[in-house]
Design a protein around this nucleic acid. Structure first.
Length: 276
DNA sequence: CGCCAGGTGCGAA
DNA sequence: TTCGCACCTGGC
């Protein structure tokens, strides 16, 4: 167990449960157990201190600081956005403490391909099945957990085996995309350096990745904050509050108004549906 | 039962 | 280029 002190403006529950990640467990003591790519961690936030327990304590503070993006000043970003549009104050105040989790690109890509036309519960179920069947077993606090499989393991799963993990018609997309990653046709490292617009087009060149999924991958897997998934909730919000209708109009409006913060603003809008 | 879930690919106009 | 539709799965 380690303690990370002086963690300001942290809404751990919202950050974990707002839909960025799928593999977490809310414990009865209000802590959260989260399965990262290489370890299982239990997180508890009390009065500005983050208590972190894990089966693997190597570089634990660094790993968690990076994963939860603790060193970015989200409060000043939120204040900047308020200056751009004061009408967003209620939503922004509601999102104080929401961090953007730095996900592993590979798991992020698989997760969001599965997410298309799917429910959160089904997505979680599929990802847990894939991990159970093909991932490394980890014992933590006397319980068994399964890490998300490595690329090598994933690349050996065929479409029928994916179906057994209840991914449905997305099986073929997964096989093809994972094969592309494995052969560097889809270079998941190169995307860090790509311009957002280019990276979107690049990802959408693969079947099973449309605008929504590509946006989520770049926002959550690569922290490209100028990319924004426009979903049904955001559409409703924009229509109700700005009388703007249609995905393209929403994109244009947000890009002009919020620029490099567009992705954050959109996520705050999405997040607001949960608590307001 | 039928409908829908943080969509996407496909074929038809 | 745009439009409508089918699609695994599980919950309601």
């Amino acid at each position: 167990m380690i303690v990370i002190k002086n963690v300001k403006n942290m809404d751990l529950e919202n950050t974990i449960t707002c839909g960025q990640i799928f593999r977490f467990i809310k414990e009865i003591d209000n802590s959260f157990t989260v399965i990262l790519c290489d370890r299982v961690v239990n997180l508890k936030y009390i009065n500005g201190e983050l208590y972190v327990d894990s089966n693997n304590e190597d570089n634990l503070e660094i790993v968690i600081r990076n994963y939860l993006d603790l060193d970015r000043d989200y409060l000043s970003i939120i204040n900047d956005i308020k200056k751009i549009d004061s009408n967003l104050k209620p939503i922004l105040n509601n999102s104080i403490g929401l961090k953007f989790i730095k996900q592993e690109p590979l798991e992020c890509i698989v997760s969001y391909v599965i997410s298309q036309n799917n429910s959160v519960r089904n997505i979680q179920n599929s990802l847990n099945l894939i991990s159970f069947n093909y991932g490394e077993k980890v014992i933590f606090n006397n319980k068994e957990y399964y890490l998300f499989p490595t690329l090598d393991k994933l690349s050996k799963i065929n479409s029928e085996e994916f179906r057994e993990c209840k991914v449905g018609f997305r099986d073929k997309y997964l096989v093809d995309i994972i094969s592309a990653i494995n052969t560097d046709m889809l270079d998941i490292n190169k995307m860090y350096d790509m311009d957002s617009e280019y990276a979107l087009e690049y990802l959408m060149g693969f079947k099973g990745i449309g605008m929504k999924v590509a946006s989520c991958i770049l926002l959550f897997g690569y922290h490209k904050f100028d990319v924004y998934p426009v979903d049904t909730w955001v559409k409703k919000f924009m229509f109700d509050n700005y009388n703007i209708f249609g995905e393209e109009n929403i994109r244009k409006y947000c890009k002009e108004k919020f620029g490099i913060y567009s992705g954050l603003v959109i996520q705050y809008m999405f997040n607001s549906k949960r608590n307001m």
